[in-house]
């Protein structure tokens, strides 16, 4: 039984903003299916009542003072940009079906 099919891979690729060729999609589906098949190994272990570990640091997040520090000069901020206009980054016009969120 396959764990993941082509349609799943294409859905996930859209979420991740990756465009896959037919060949890539087929390969990725096969690879992910194998990897997820291996991962099923975890089902052997009873994890009931086990707290998940998100982090090994047993501390609280540090808090920073609310004091402004050095900022990037605007021309440095956009220095690596593939396209910019003044000190703003430029991207192709947002289309109607690409609205936020």
């Amino acid at each position: 039984m396959s764990r993941i099919d082509r349609e799943d891979v294409e859905r996930v690729a859209r979420l991740a903003r990756l465009r896959l060729s037919d060949e890539e999609a087929a390969e990725m589906t096969a690879d992910l299916d194998r990897i997820l098949g291996y991962v099923d190994l975890l089902e052997e272990v009873s994890t009931e009542g086990v707290e998940p570990t998100a982090h090994v640091i047993p501390l609280a997040t540090p808090l920073r003072d609310d004091v402004p520090a050095e900022e990037l000069p605007p021309e440095v901020a956009v220095a690596n940009a593939p396209a910019s206009e003044g000190t703003a980054f430029a991207v192709p016009k947002v289309l109607d079906d690409e609205a936020e969120g």
């Binding site: 993941i4 799943d8 896959l20 990725m28």
Partner: peptide, 10 residues
């Protein structure tokens, strides 16, 4: 990298 992004997203 694509393989891992896909796996992680999934």
């Amino acid at each position: 990298v694509k393989r891992r992004i896909l796996l992680g997203t999934y």
